[in-house]
Design a protein around this nucleic acid. Sequence first.
DNA 1: TGTACATCAGTGAACGCGCGTTCACTGATGTAC
DNA 2: TGTACATCAGTGAACGCGCGTTCACTGATGTAC
Lengths: 211, 211
Amino acid sequence: MTRLIHKIPITRSTYRHGDLKRALLETSVMLARDGGPDALILREVTRRVGVAPNAAYRYFASRQALLKAVQSSALALMAVFIENETAKLPSELTAVDFAFANLRAVGTGYLKFAQAESGLFRVVFAIVDDVDPTQVNGDDLEPFQLFRAALDQLVDAKVLTTENKISAQYFVWSSVHGLATLILNGSLNHMTHQQVKVLEQKLFDRIEKGL
Amino acid sequence: MTRLIHKIPITRSTYRHGDLKRALLETSVMLARDGGPDALILREVTRRVGVAPNAAYRYFASRQALLKAVQSSALALMAVFIENETAKLPSELTAVDFAFANLRAVGTGYLKFAQAESGLFRVVFAIVDDVDPTQVNGDDLEPFQLFRAALDQLVDAKVLTTENKISAQYFVWSSVHGLATLILNGSLNHMTHQQVKVLEQKLFDRIEKGL
DNA sequence: TGTACATCAGTGAACGCGCGTTCACTGATGTAC
DNA sequence: TGTACATCAGTGAACGCGCGTTCACTGATGTAC
C-alpha cells in the first residue's frame, strides 16, 4: 500500500496515461514555440511527457504526422491572434472605412503572431513533404484564407471587383507575409521595434493604395 | 615510378590539393543548391572533395563559417539573375517608363532566382547565428540593396520622393520576397506555372500602384 | 646544382552526441458472465 | 458481487545512422644556403 504511494510518479498516477495524445501534442507545440520545426524532436517530446520514445507511435504515424498536427494547432492560434485584432475594431465606421480597417487589423494580427510566436509561425510555413493524403484533415484551415473575410468586405464595399479579389488577396498576403519573414530572418535587425512598427503602418498604407 | 602513377587519385594528382578552399566552397554551393542550408553537411563536402573530414578546418573555422561563405556566393548569383533581367530592358523609354520597367525587371530576376535556385535562395535568407563579427566581410552585398538602383531611378523620375524611398523599398522587397517564399513553401502548389506567372505580373501592377 | 631543413596542408583516429523507427513484449485495465 | 479473460496502452531493447569537432601527427613541398 505504502509502496504503491511511493511509486506514484510525479507526472503520472496511473499505468495508463489517459490523455497521452493530447499531452504529446501540447508538448510538441511547446517545443516548436521555442525553436520552430527543427525543435520538434520525437524523443524529446516523449522524454518530457515521461513516456517511452516509441509510445508516440500509437497516436502519430511518424514525426511528420506529429509536425502536421502542430501545424494545425499553430494555424488555429494564428487565427486567434487575428480575431483579437479584428475584435477591437470600432463599429461606427462606413462600410468602406470598416473594410480597410479590417484589412489592417488582419495584417496586424498576422504580424503580431509572427513576432510573438515566431517558432509556431515557422512551423505553419514549414514544408511538410506530403503526409499520407488519406490522413489529411480536409477541413484544416489554410493560411490563404486568413485574409479572405477582409477582402470580401472590400468587394462588398465596392472597393474591389470580384475578378480582382483573388489577385488582391495574393498581393496582400505576399506583402504582409514577406514583411513577416524579413523580420524573422533578421533582415530588419538594424531597426528598433518602434521603427518596425512605423514600417508596418507604411506597408499597410501602400497595400491599400495598391488594391 | 609506375607505382606512383598508379597511386594518382582521380580527384587529386598532388599531395597538396592546391585549391582546397575553392573546391570546398564550390562543393558546398552544389550541396546547398540541391537541398538548401540543411544540405550543407561538412563531412559530405569533404567526402566529395576527396579529403579528410577535418581538412576543412584549415580554411573555415566551422560549419557556420562555411555556410556564411555559401551565403555570399548565393547572393552574388542572385544579383547576376537580376542583372540578366535588367540587361534586357529597351533603352528607348522615357525616364518614368524605364524606371518602372527596371523595377519589374529586378522583381522578375528575384523571383526567377528563387524558383530556379530555391536551395540557394533559402541559404541567402537562412539565419546564421552570429559568426564572429571580426570575420565578417564588410563589403558583402546585402539583399536589401538589390532593389536600390530601381528605386533610385524612380526618385530621379520624380515618381517617388526621397523621404518615401526607404519605405517604398521595404514595400517592394516585402511583396516580392513574400511571393517568392509563398511559392517555395508550397502555398501556390495548386496553381500551374502559367497561373503563377500571371500572378507575378498582377503583383507588379499592384506594387506600382502602391508606390 | 645539390643538400638540409622548416613549414604547414592534409591525415587518422577518436570523442560525444542523439536521432527516428521497429520488434516482440507485458501487465493494468474494463468488460462480460 | 466475484471471477476469467481479452484488449491494447505503454515498455525495453536494439538497429542503423551520421554528424561536427578536436587531437596529435606526418610527410611532400618550397626555400635558403
